[in-house]
Write a protein that binds this DNA or RNA. Sequence first.
DNA 1: CGAAACTCCTGAGCGC
DNA 2: TGCGCTCAGGAGTTTC
Length: 269
Amino acid sequence: MPELPEVETTRLGLTPHIAGRRVTGVVVRNGDMRWPVPTDLAQRLVGEELLSLSRRGKYLLFEFSSGVVLWHLGMSGSLRIVKPGEPEGAHDHIDVVFDGVVLRFHDPRRFGSVLWTENPYQHKLIKHLGPEPLSLGFTGEYLYLKSRGRSQAIKTFIMDSKVVVGVGNIYANEALFSSGLHPLKAANRLTKPKAALLVLKIKSILEKAIARGGTTLRDFVNSEGKPGYFAQELSVYGRGGLDCKACGKRLTEKKVGQRSTVFCTHCQR
DNA sequence: CGAAACTCCTGAGCGC
DNA sequence: TGCGCTCAGGAGTTTC
């Protein structure tokens, strides 16, 4: 379940291996993803040089001179570099073969997507996205103004990619706890100072997670079989029924907008 | 327009 | 040891 830090970690990890390299082949073993993988993907890519790899929200943008591959990892997708000829395992659905290295896509749940576009910033999936959470455009003032007239729960609001991209369930829970905000509070009841605080908390928690290498997966274990470092620092996510780390009161867990939500009724108002 | 339900999918975890 | 159930989760789509 990649959140923005995992996607950014993926981007940074892949770039030195494939940037500037030319595609020599594309193998689609199973193109039945969120949307069908374009059947002409190989024709589009073979012979093309990867100019750069960027990111918008949780979409990775593989930029070629003739167009861009938009690649979303969904909830269970991952991209890694393997050696040519390395046998594929279950759910290894796509290979993009470069001279010397293979980019391999693994996605058990097939919620990921691979799309081709010539104008990525005009693409309907990209065009209406809100600001990047770590950009200068994501400010308390922006969030405050955007929340006026919105009666939905603040948690659902900050997870809306048209409001701000990249805030998934784990970080929404954590940022609201750090800000002392109840997840069910109506967005339009945010005060300016609280909006400013929430924006700062979203930024700091995402920055910290990126610095950790995005080790936030609930099932993430390192080579020694221990949970990811960052997972141990989570205050509320995955801790329903346990004691609040700040005040000791038992944490509440309930569904908000179909998503598991954990909070402290004493610390969050 | 906004809000909330619905949808895609498989593996993990649980009770029995 | 295995069956059947529930849950997790990003985000686009549908419905009201």
